[in-house]
């Protein structure tokens, strides 16, 4: 049951990415390109996504546990530190260079596997570097 819900959520997420145009790195980069032919589409995607999620957070406040699991397991960290800031800044640099963030990159494995594979492999490499250089 939990596996099916996660698969459904992932598939809906991936379908949304493909429909919204966010699976196109050049469209994403055009949103970040304030001094070029700026494309505001990404702002509509973010706005559209935040609405159901804001409603979901309201429901979350009123229920004891999720519908298909024993308890909520949400990030409780509140620290605003250098790691958060540096990590976010670095992510933005990579996002700007490639026009890809993790979701669209993984979803694109079904659309343009050859083109996106170098990014996904390098991204896993970056995740591994972080994993083995911390703790």
């Amino acid at each position: 049951m939990r596996i099916m819900i996660a698969l459904l959520s992932g598939a809906l997420f991936g379908a949304g990415l493909a429909i919204s145009g966010m699976a196109d790195p050049m469209r994403v980069r055009a949103f970040l390109d304030l001094f070029g032919a700026w494309d505001p589409t990404l702002a509509f995607v973010m706005g559209g996504a935040i609405v159901p999620m804001a409603l979901a957070w309201m429901v979350h406040k009123r229920i004891e546990r999720p519908f298909a699991d024993k308890a909520f397991a949400l990030p409780e960290t509140r620290a605003i530190d250098g790691k958060l800031a540096l990590g976010a800044i670095l992510f933005g640099v990579g996002w700007g260079i490639g026009g890809l963030c993790p979701g669209p990159a993984i979803a694109s494995l079904a659309l343009a596997p050859g083109a996106v594979a170098p990014f996904v492999l390098a991204m896993l490499g970056g995740i591994a570097i972080h994993r083995f250089t911390t703790q």
Binding site: I5, A11, G21
Partner: peptide, 18 residues
Amino acid sequence: GGLMIGLAAAIMLLGLGR
């Protein structure tokens, strides 16, 4: 597409608590 993405995230939150 954004609404679908938000709905997907809502399913994850309210279904699995994550």
